[in-house]
């Protein structure tokens, strides 16, 4: 397979996974900002959303106030934000078009239709900061559906060869990165002392974290008790059955990298690094993580994941 094809297919997956994450993040944050001020966050919700999405550095170039209308417009619809949802969909479509032969007809037609719908939505809503909640919710549902259907079409129609493995690898790696970003922004809410301080107010914060990675229902099934911050951290970092936990994502990353290595008959730095990160997660306990510092742990994880992404590019994608 062409190195460029692998690169494109991997990035289509990453962009669509990122779009899905941003949609969930905006949804969860609008919920909490709709609460009466007594429940409102200690930390400014919309600033933390900007940080979690990596848009905090460029946002001030275009807007003065980090309020709901501005942040939502910037994250969802702004063409000037390289990681906005609309750009993720557009880049995914451009990448897919560049490798039309690598995706199946179903996947291509789906991503192409999504792009056409996006353009249609934009022509109906020329002013992003004026989009009402109803239209926004409709749009966010459309985004989540776009990512799910692309995944689903791939699952149902793709040959199980390196093309598929690179597509899955992109999803897993992006997902790991997204979960880590949420943890990185919200870590202080999850520290044990919050339990006594926060009480019912923090309940909404914790549930927002869970919602942003679509884990609220899963939490109840796994722990069968009210939301405790260390359980939230445990669920998002170490639980193998939670599809967006760091460990679960790395299980996938290792799986797909091994599949690629096996097909090519050669394993390299990417496989070694991925396995090392996974082993570290498997050996960790939530108690130790808190003792040595949740923030430091997550920070280290993000750095290692970036290192792995470079190793993958070096080994396979740059050619």
């Amino acid at each position: 397979m062409l190195a460029r094809t692998a690169d494109n297919i991997y990035w289509v997956s990453r962009y669509l996974e990122r779009a899905d994450f941003l949609a969930r993040l905006i949804e969860a944050s609008s919920r909490i900002s709709a609460l009466p001020t007594a429940y409102a966050a200690k930390q400014d919700e919309w600033t933390s959303v900007l940080i979690a999405s990596g848009a905090d550095e460029t946002f001030p170039d275009h807007f003065e106030v980090a309020n709901e209308a501005n942040v939502t417009a910037y994250l969802a619809f702004d063409a000037r934000n390289p990681s906005s949802i609309r750009n993720c969909i557009q880049f995914a479509r451009t990448n897919a078009r560049a490798v039309r032969t690598a995706v199946t007809v179903e996947m291509w037609e789906h991503i192409n239709s999504a792009w056409l719908k996006l353009k249609n939505f934009e022509s109906q809503h020329p002013e992003p900061t004026a989009i009402d909640r109803e239209a926004l919710n409709g749009f966010l549902d459309f985004v989540k559906e776009t990512s799910s259907l692309y995944d689903g079409h791939g699952y149902r129609t793709m040959l199980r060869n390196d093309v598929y493995f690179f597509a899955r690898l992109g999803v897993s790696l992006e997902r790991a990165d997204n979960t880590a970003r949420v943890l990185d922004v919200k870590y202080q809410l999850l520290l044990p002392e919050n339990e006594t301080v926060g009480g019912s107010v923090d309940y909404f914060q914790w549930s927002t974290i869970l919602r942003s990675v679509s884990a609220l229902t899963a939490y109840h099934w796994v722990y069968r008790e009210s939301i405790k911050p260390w359980n939230v951290a445990d669920l998002l970092i170490l639980r193998p059955e939670m599809p967006r936990s760091l460990l679960s994502c790395y299980g996938e990353v290792v799986r797909w990298l091994d599949a690629i290595g096996n097909q090519y008959g050669r394993h390299g730095a990417a496989q070694r690094q991925a396995r090392a990160i996974k082993r570290k997660l498997e050996g960790a306990s939530i108690k130790e993580i808190f003792q040595s510092g949740l923030h430091e742990f997550v920070d280290g994880f993000i750095t290692e994941t970036n290192g792995l992404a470079s190793a993958i590019a070096e080994q396979y994608l740059l050619g």
Binding site: M1, L2, A3, R4, T101, F166, Y264, G319
Partner: peptide, 21 residues
């Protein structure tokens, strides 16, 4: 494969494409 010029390289009068392998 659908290749672009940048996917190709020529060495000793033989054309190669850059692949993941």
């Amino acid at each position: 494969e659908l290749v672009e010029g940048r996917d190709l390289t020529v060495r000793d009068d033989i054309v190669y494409m850059r692949t993941t392998e």
